[in-house]
Design a protein around this nucleic acid. Structure first.
Lengths: 115, 115
DNA sequence: AATGATACATACTTTAGGGTAAGTACTTGT
DNA sequence: ACAAGTACTTACCCTAAAGTATGTATCATT
């Protein structure tokens, strides 16, 4: 009666796939809506939180810090906070963050050729 | 009483941002979980639907055709169906699909250096 | 008459990402 | 005393993406 169909399959392998597929690994790091945009803006150099906000007007603050925190824990950006009031916090790309720029550029190149 | 906060902002610009940001444009095309993986497997050449299934065991059939259709309407892959029974359908990268390979490779290169 | 192979389609549910709207802490300026 | 600036935080909601399970069409073979 309940013949299970093998076509719709397991996803337990998914985790292992994630650990083994380098492209997926990269997507995990930069594959959200805002992250590439943030990285792009940081490619110009260190920026304050408020500067990023101004540079990317469409992003909400929640999304902005959320992704900045994620990028920081992933080691792609470096956060520097000076203990002053009002706060002065800057973000910049780390070395591995900078090494992502070729990826971003490859994407941009492809896009401009195909939009 | 209801002082509206300007910090949490508009997203009407988002659409325009999408149309203007090339990186976002590319992400729209390949920025899902399975698409880069599918493209990678098609980089080896034309493949049948069932071959892709076997090559990517963790994907469900729903996701597989859903993304293949999307890639097709985006002009990244070409579908060829021979009118035989049982069906014989192959997928291959189009020219713009092939031009995505540098992006995929850049991602893979970065990943292998940072996993 | 039932089974198998192939390439899908589809109804339903779950989950994750993103969005909205506000609040907080600390100090300087008026 | 109170507003203003900076860099967040948090509670709640909404939607879109992904997953589960099953169904379908066609013909050849047994």
């Amino acid at each position: 009666m309940t013949a299970i169909k093998s076509s719709s399959t397991i996803q337990q392998n998914k985790k292992t796939a994630l650990e083994m597929c380098p492209v997926t690994f990269t997507m995990e790091k930069i594959g959200s809506y805002w992250k590439p945009i943030i990285i792009y803006h940081l490619s110009e150099g260190s920026k304050r939180y408020s500067e990023l906000k101004k540079a990317i007007p469409a992003v909400t603050e929640k999304m902005l810090i959320q992704h900045l925190k994620q990028l920081e824990t992933d080691g792609l950006v470096i956060r520097e906070a000076r203990p002053v009031v009002p706060p002065y916090v800057t973000y910049q790309l780390s070395e591995s963050g900078r090494q992502l720029l070729p990826v971003i550029h490859a994407m941009a190149t492809w896009a401009t050729a195909h939009m």
